[in-house]
């Protein structure tokens, strides 16, 4: 079944008691069904014109959750899906001969989305006058998301740099609080390398624990944030996703950074003599 998305609802009215089995069928979005209190099996009338003239009668065969579109965030997807002949019959100008209609755009779902590029090349090579492209490339949405992605990278980079400075300052303060202990250890005869190694191990453990805590917090918040915004915008769009790759990246950045901050802070301390440190 080739399905077209009708962007606007032409008109809808429930005809609950009509004999419906031989009527053409449509699918309606969950949002539209909720707003108009429609249910599977209901019949509705759709018209091309806003005044409802020349309506067609259809039976609702199903209610579907539309594919979330971040480009239309905040707009309730009040849509229906019709079979192509029904759409043509509904929208054709009576003066237009059958077969002379024009279709601007068709969305095609492939079994394997990874074939999209190959499929588009195939279509473009075979059919003159048809231009196929990936849905994500259509309407400039990809460029929009590239800009957004770069913006996110910029925010992430600034956040990491600021967090590193903060972490280093915090670590220097924490290490400085232990200067007397470090001084005593140096006086007893612990080599600087040995203390540095201990501090490094401590730094790695604390950073790993911190990263783990951060991940658990993010995972806990992931569900809450998604639920809130999905409720707020009435969409199935996923706003936050902590994927294994994201988690691994976080740990890969946090642990070396935490350990390095601890070692840098400790190194500054260990360059001083044990006596000066112990005397405070």
């Amino acid at each position: 079944m080739i399905v077209l998305i009708l962007a606007a609802v032409l008109g809808a009215a429930s005809l609950a008691s009509a004999q419906t089995t031989d009527l053409p069928t449509i699918l309606v979005t969950r949002q539209l069904a909720e707003r108009e209190r429609l249910a599977v099996g209901d019949t509705v009338q759709l018209a091309r014109e806003a005044d409802g003239a020349n309506p067609g009668t259809f039976r609702i065969a199903g209610i579907y959750e539309p594919v979330p579109d971040p480009m239309r965030l905040g707009q309730a997807p009040l849509e229906i899906r019709l079979h192509l002949p029904d759409l043509q019959g509904l929208t054709r100008n009576p003066a237009t001969p059958v077969g002379a209609e024009r279709v601007d755009q068709i969305n095609i779902t492939l079994v394997d989305p990874a074939d999209a590029e190959q499929f588009a090349d195939d279509i473009n090579g075979r059919t003159a006058g048809v231009f196929a492209m990936r849905a994500t490339d259509a309407g400039g949405s990809r460029e929009t998301f590239l800009v957004l992605e770069r913006f996110h990278y910029a925010i992430a980079t600034v956040t990491i740099i600021a967090a590193t400075v903060f972490l280093l300052a915090l670590t220097i303060m924490l290490v400085d609080e232990r200067r007397e202990t470090v001084g005593v250890l140096r006086l007893i005869g612990l080599p600087a390398r040995r203390i540095l190694m201990q501090v490094f191990i401590e730094g790695v453990l604390i950073a790993a624990a911190g990263a783990l805590f951060g991940l658990l917090l993010a995972i806990a918040c992931e569900s809450l944030l998604n639920r809130f915004f999905q409720w707020r915008y009435d969409t199935a769009l996923v706003f936050v996703r902590i994927s294994p790759r994201v988690a691994a990246t976080c740990v890969a950045i946090a642990v070396p950074l935490g350990a390095a901050a601890t070692v840098v802070a400790s190194w500054a301390l260990l360059r001083r003599s044990g006596l000066r440190l112990a005397r405070r």
Binding site: E180, G183, V184, R186, L187, I188, G189, L190, P191, A192, R193, R194, A278
Partner: peptide, 20 residues
């Protein structure tokens, strides 16, 4: 520094006024 630290650790004992 490492060898000097080990010398202190194994051959020299320190007692300070403030105990440390």
């Amino acid at each position: 520094d490492h060898a000097r630290s080990l010398l202190r650790l194994r051959q020299i004992g320190f007692v300070f006024q403030r105990f440390y």
